[in-house]
Design a protein around this nucleic acid. Sequence first.
DNA 1: ACATTGACCTGAGAGC
DNA 2: TGCTCTCAGGTCAATG
Length: 263
Amino acid sequence: MPELPDVENFKRYFSEHTLHQKITAVEIDEPDLLEEISAGQLKERLVGQKFVTTYRHGKHLFAGLNSQDWLRFHFGMTGFLKYFDNLGQRPDHVRLELQFENESRLAFDCQRKLGEIGYVAKVETFLEENDLGPDVLAEDFDYPAFETALGDSRAMLKNTLMDQSRLAGIGNIYADEITFQTNHHPKKKTRQLDETQLRELHAAARGVLQTAVRCLAENQGFPGDYIIPHRDEGASCPRCQAEIERIEVSGRGTYICPECQEE
DNA sequence: ACATTGACCTGAGAGC
DNA sequence: TGCTCTCAGGTCAATG
């Protein structure tokens, strides 16, 4: 689930519920998910603090504390946040739970344990050390920045889009949507695109992610010409009715319309 | 430099 | 009902 649009919504959810409340207890149910800090230290650093701000870069969510440090979440394949005050609403695979002054709680649920919980002093340092490219929805991510980010990638288009060191935020689902919207086969070499096509790709990448953020926020379906709701072998293309195909690209399940996206 | 494969983990759903 | 198989929206390391 969690690609950039999901994480952007987690950010909003986090802000809406947890800011400016004193943390009174921290329960760590799965210490293996901790990255830059031990369980004991994390408790020490969090109890008594408040979250004052949030920041997102790609698929990473940073929650800023009044100590100036940041708690970092990466959601892996199955992570999500749940805020609740009635224990009956506690989800099934909680790996970290924060309790607040008013007895409410925030859980980080992560069934497959592929997520990460980190703790960093500076966001910029983390981004550099982990070689993350620019966030695709950053305000200043204009076409020249996009061109720079792609560099001289010789990979297949889908792989370039998903390469977090070039572009931060795009995963399997939205890579497919972006190639569909621009009528490219995902295995096409990125290098083969001319400038007009690259400009279209840039606009489509931002447009798709922006639209997805909004659709998820409003809990409504995707636009009628999106392939996302038709990720099924045998489903029909929302634009030309041809049969959707499932192929593999670098081991990832990939859905395409063979008519709209010729190789 | 890039593609492929398997590993990390666990569970849901399909098919028998 | 229960078993087995496949698949899952992320990332890393090893291999060719």
